[in-house]
Amino acid sequence: MTTSASAPAAAPSTTAVAARTKGLRKEYGSTVAVDRVDLELPEGAVLGMLGPNGSGKTTTIRMLLGLVRPTQGEIELLGTPLPDGAEQALPHVGALVEGPGFHPFLSGRENLVRCAAFEPLLPKKQIKQAVEDALERVGLAQAAHRRFRGYSLGMKQRLGLAAALLVPRKLVVLDEPTNGLDPAGTREIRKIIAELHEQGSTVLVSSHLLSEVEATCTHVAVLHRGTVVAQGELTELLQAGGSALHVITPDVETALSALRQAKISARPLGDGLRVELAGTSAPQVIETLVKAGAGVYEATRWKTGLEELFARLTEAEEAERGMSAVDTLDGGAR
């Protein structure tokens, strides 16, 4: 599998970049939250940031937004270095970080009006309209007069999204945007992300829901233990992750030994075999099997899901294999 990894390389580096980090490191006392994070967010991309809890996703996002000062490393946001260029870059950035933050005693509308008052790009006259539009967009127009205190988790999340979308943004950063939303709400968020993508905004979504990322993102970055273990275009990553062939054969033993002789990785699975296609191809596998006299009833191509990729990259038991995969994928992304 290592051999085929170099194939899908180098596409993103030619396009313009909305955000970029270099050697980012953040220490809190003696603990290192994030280390050697080199992230690239191509303009117009929808980047899904994946990683288990504590992998440094939120810390990275907070550094990207100038909320946290990195111990080491460089950040470039919309062409200006952070945190010092925050005042130029941040007006064009909408963000929903670490859950929606609003005042419980104000209504949804009042909360948005307060946020709008602090938006540099929003002229005073347009505040009212912008607030109504944002409420409409996230489907909160009906509940806008109610106090934030009484909102359901999903409504709170939508209000947070509305605040991020008060002004047309070049970059929208959404930290766990579907948290607490019902399936309908989740679909709406997907729709909004797709709209933003269509309008040409760059979107950074962090999520633990892999299906979410798979459905909406064009790019993926996987964080593990404070470092980026893989990043790149989603399709390329999935291919690089290697696909497999599910072969149903009555002669499992024969097939296995034949494949081993041909140095093709395989293992028994159910009533057949799972053959890794890394370093080989489907016709080659079938040919090997047929030559060895193992009957092939059925051969199905088994595409790697994001979930599998993610698991492989982050699971501790598979540390060694994971590490080799990291090298591969990392290389592939560059």
């Binding site: 937004l65 925050a86 933050g101 540099p120």
Partner: peptide, 14 residues
């Protein structure tokens, strides 16, 4: 505490 400080800083307010 309410998480609104982040919102203000990201708006951004220096």
């Amino acid at each position: 505490q309410h998480g609104t400080l982040r919102g203000l800083l990201v708006a951004p307010v220096s």
